[in-house]
Every structure is written in C-alpha cells, then in structure tokens.
Amino acid sequence: MTDPQPSSAPTVTRVTSRVLLLGDRIDAQGLERPDTISTVPLAFHAGANGYVALYRFGVAVLVGLSPLEEEEFLRLLDLRVSGKRGVRDDETALLEVSPQFEDRAPPGGPIQLKDLSPERFLVLADALAKSVSMARDEREVSAVFDVIEPFAADLADKGRPPFRRRAMLKLIGQALLVQHRVSGRIAVEEKPDVLWDRPDLERLYARLEDEYELKERAGTLKRKLDVIVETVRAMTDIIDADRATRLEATIVLLIVGELLISLFQIWHGR
C-alpha cells in the first residue's frame, strides 16, 4: 500500500502596488494602447506582468512594475501632468495573489486577491487612488484650519475682526477647490464602472472601502469644509459690517464738518 502523495499548496504571489499623486491633473488623451483594459480611467497592461491606471485628478496607480519600468513610465508621463507639487505623495500596498484567497483586505495586512485580473485591478486601483487623493485634501484642509484659528482667537480675545478681507476670500477659495475635488473629480461616493459588468466584485470594493475608510473620510472632509466656509463667511460679514459702520461715521463727520464750515462762513460774513 502506497502512501498518498501530499498535495502541493497553492503558491502565493506577492506583488507591490504603488500609488502616486503627481499633480492636479493628468492629461491621458492620446495614451490609448491596443492592450487598454479601460478608458475611464485609462488603464492598460505595462511592463512584463503589470498594470497602470491613470486618473484625471492627478493619480497614477502602478501594479507589478519593476523599479526601472516605473521610472521609465513616469518619465514619459511627466509632460502630461499639470499642477505639479514640490513633493509627490507616494503610497505603497502589498498584494498577495492566490486562488485560495477570497478577496480580502485585512486591517494592516497585505491585500489578498484570488487573481490579478484586469477587473480586480480596476477595483483595487479605484480605492487606492481615492485614498491617496483624499490624504492630500485632508492636509490642505488642516492647513486652512491653522490659518483660521489665529483670526478666530483674535476675534474672541479682542472682539475685533481681522481687516484682511482678501485673505478670508482666499480661504473660501481653497475650501471650495477641495470641495470640488472631493465631490466632483474624485467622486469618492461613486463606485467604479467595472462593477456594472462584474457585480461579483462588489464585496472586494466594499472591503477596500472599509479598509481605507473612504466614506468616513469623505464625510469628515465635507463637515470640515462646511465649518471653514461658514466661519470665513461670518468673518467677512463682520468685516463688511465694520467697514460699513466706519463709512457711515466718516459720512456723518463730513456732514458735520460741512455744517461747521457753512456756519463759520455765515458768521464771518456778518
């Protein structure tokens, strides 16, 4: 009687994904290739066994590329990036691919995928791109809060509004830009289009959404933006009211001065 041969366990392939926030926008028009797997976002095969996805809000997701392949691709993409930042936002995520997995995103651990098909890549790339873009917006909103705090403290301490109305309007503009990115271009609450054709990947996207807390972070950002806009508008209203009061006082003084001059001329004439 022969002993049964031990069955070989399925191999686990480890792949690194890299997410880069290159700037405000990426112009991907004209980069379509025969091996394109998606047009919105533009995604295609790259390198020996990798993928690339380009998002119009300035994010590139690279999976399975070697460092040399990444460097060469980013060099070619450089001229198509507008609104570049001094320092790139760069995040990495480790993927484990094996038929034994059930598409999971364990907290703090590598993302486990059944396979690295184009559809699974698009779902993964969507979540990663939204996460790194919101990280930029979270920093910008925190910076706006740091600017507003001294104004509010001065108003509370001295009861005197800041006189820099232009600075207040610039803060409103910054908040509106972030709001536009979160609700418009990034569309955090919208699911990737690939799920229309592959509803079986809904669970994978939901797990990635929970792991990166996309909905919670988007909700927090919107609440902070509402606070910023309301605060700055209140300050500009106070500034405008204070200016109107000073203008009225100036007009009253001019009228009184004109009356005094008229009385003096009448008295001098007599």
Score class of each variant (00 low, 15 high):
R185W: 10
I261G: 14
I26V: 08
V147K: 13
F57Y: 11
D90K: 03
A46V: 14
D3Q: 03
R56Y: 15
A156M: 12
A152L: 12
D226A: 06
S142V: 04
D146Y: 05
L94C: 03
F101Y: 15
E190A: 15
T236C: 10
L208C: 02
S8P: 05
A93G: 00
V188D: 00
S17K: 03
D210W: 00
P34F: 15
Q174D: 14
K215Y: 09
L95C: 01
L79P: 07
I251N: 10
P99V: 05
W267V: 09
R139G: 02
T236M: 10
R207G: 09
V194S: 08
T13V: 13
L260C: 09
V15Y: 06
A129Q: 06
R181N: 10
A93Q: 00
Q265M: 08
V256S: 00
V194Q: 05
V15T: 12
D126Y: 01
R217H: 11
P106C: 05
F145E: 13
L260P: 09
P4W: 09
L225H: 10
D242K: 06
M1D: 04
L208V: 02
I255P: 09
G159H: 05
I37K: 00
K84V: 08
F151Q: 01
P34L: 14
A249N: 13
E248K: 02
A48E: 14
R85P: 06
I239F: 14
I255N: 07
E230Y: 08
H268W: 12
D126N: 09
R75F: 08
W196V: 14
V141L: 09
A127T: 13
S262W: 08
F151K: 08
A53S: 15
E149N: 14
E32P: 00
A43D: 07
D115R: 01
P150Q: 00
A175R: 01
E69C: 00
R56F: 12
L214H: 01
V147S: 08
E96N: 01
L176F: 11
A105F: 01
M1K: 03
T236A: 12
L68H: 11
E213I: 01
L113I: 01
L221Y: 06
W267Q: 10
R104W: 02
Y205Q: 01
V182W: 04
A218D: 14
L225Q: 07
S8I: 08
G58P: 10
A249D: 14
L253R: 13
G159Q: 07
A125S: 07
S142H: 13
D154N: 14
P106I: 00
L225V: 03
M134A: 02
A143G: 05
V232F: 02
R160S: 02
R14S: 13
Q29T: 04
F73Y: 13
V188F: 05
A28R: 03
E213M: 05
P161M: 10
S38P: 04
G184Y: 05
K215D: 06
Q5E: 12
L260R: 01
S183F: 11
H180L: 05
R207N: 05
F264I: 15
L195T: 07
A153C: 11
M134Q: 07
F57Q: 04
E102M: 12
D35W: 06
K222E: 15
R14G: 13
L254W: 11
F121A: 04
G109D: 07
V15M: 07
